[in-house]
Design a protein around this nucleic acid. Structure first.
Lengths: 244, 244
DNA sequence: CGGTGTTGTGTCGGTACCGACATAACGTTT
DNA sequence: AAACGTTATGTCGGTACCGACACAACACCG
């Protein structure tokens, strides 16, 4: 489209590595607390003054101050400032600011999990629906998932960290646990890291089910290719998104 | 997720309700595909032409076209355009564009889960660590979670949709499942919706453990206040974030 | 009592982005 | 052959944001 002059890397348009990402936000009273704001608060905590913090971040003091006024209007008092005094004064974070930072960090951490963890996505058709929960017919059989109200042809996404594995023998009856989706399968691969192992399980579907377990669990269960296991995951943790 | 209505800070009437949010992105080759871009592609799919799509969105054609050039440079061919012809031409989405949209929607859906689902956060101290996995001492006992490498004093976040409940009787031995964190407790409250139930379980910790199960599971297990249950969750699904 | 470095507040330019507009190329339909 | 509505491309002005700068108020210290 735009480059009539063919340059070297433009030809390899087919293999574009696309990576998921996100930006966490905390919304209150019309203003949103974002990553920049978190960085600003942390810089103030480190430097002890708004001035030095803005300097460290390469931002202007006036903008930083103006931004903090907006934030405090929405989130409440964030920093205890003192002008004059030894060293001319300074600013320290309030407890509320620390709580806000902690909450932001928790959100960011949780979102990071979703963005980075492996997942298996299965195409399927909704065959039944009660409220937000749909029963979906997939290559591996029927499973239940949270689904938007109008979708019929869907993708079901199963995050690897929500799949728990059990030995096929000694598996408890299905009625006694709240994990409603259960599939018998055989372990295909085990990729064991230092503390975490990624396991793929053949459950009859086109892409195998991928599960993320601790290395400890992998050892305790004796996971190895060919082993018969039961993979289970909660329906409230698996989501369907519209296809087509 | 718990909002500002925390325990004892009664005097702080100016606490605005703070809501988590996010912005999903797909990153490739330096440019990021965001919500606006997804809306643009969907509008093109609906309208059949870039011109009409930009008009529908209230955006200018030139900007939309320029943006699409950037996107195609990074993500590959996104739309099959034809100028001249019936109605003057038009543009339709390529298969790659549809896949990109689907992937974006899956990401958005997964992130929505994290942002909206209730969670319980427990303060604790890291007492052991092997790789990315830390053992944390909390008010409810020891549990394992993914943790950043340097944190000692942490918050442990347990998403409600990752907690599975079982009848305290008939619970299988711990060694036979890959859900390493298990806590005995008693059901405190059950809030049953049409298809989903939110259950709080007293496990000895200050904030009770909150679990999100299907209404079906709630009925099958016969969940009601006072009932003894076992709550279990995978360590690969629970995350620790630095405190202090 | 002046020195110091900060907070608090306002104003002034520069820049980057965006919408509006103009124009060429194009191919089917009339 | 003319008409039509689109794609494709470039230019121009306006606006919103941001950094730079100026200046008053302040409180502790030497």
């Amino acid at each position: 489209m735009d480059d009539g002059s063919e340059s070297g890397d433009a030809g390899a348009a087919d293999s574009a590595p696309v990576a998921p990402a996100f930006e966490a936000k905390l919304h209150a009273d019309g203003v949103t607390f974002g990553a920049d704001d978190a960085a600003l608060l942390r810089a103030i905590d480190d430097a002890g003054s708004l001035n030095a913090a803005a300097d460290d971040l390469g931002r202007s003091y006036s903008r930083a101050h103006k931004r903090l006024s907006q934030l405090e209007a929405a989130f409440g008092s964030l920093l205890a400032s003192q002008r004059g005094g030894t060293g001319g004064g300074g600013s320290t974070l309030t407890e509320r600011a620390r709580a806000l930072l902690a909450r932001f960090e928790r959100l960011r951490s949780g979102l990071t999990g979703v963005a980075e963890v492996a997942e298996t996505v299965l195409p399927g058709e909704v065959v039944d629906r009660t409220g937000e929960i749909a029963t979906v017919e997939t290559g591996a059989g029927r499973l239940r998932a949270l689904a938007p109200p109008d979708a019929m042809s869907v993708f079901v996404t199963i995050r690897a960290d929500t799949v728990t594995l059990q030995d096929a023998d000694g598996a408890p009856p299905a009625a006694e646990t709240s994990a409603r989706n259960r599939f018998r399968g055989t372990v295909r691969t085990v990729e064991r890291g230092e503390s975490v192992a990624t396991v793929t399980v053949d459950v009859g579907a086109d892409p195998p089910l991928v599960a993320l377990v601790t290395a400890r669990s992998s050892d305790l269960l004796g996971l190895e290719p060919g082993m018969a296991v039961v993979a289970s995951f909660k329906t409230t943790a698996t989501r369907a998104t519209p296809r087509a």
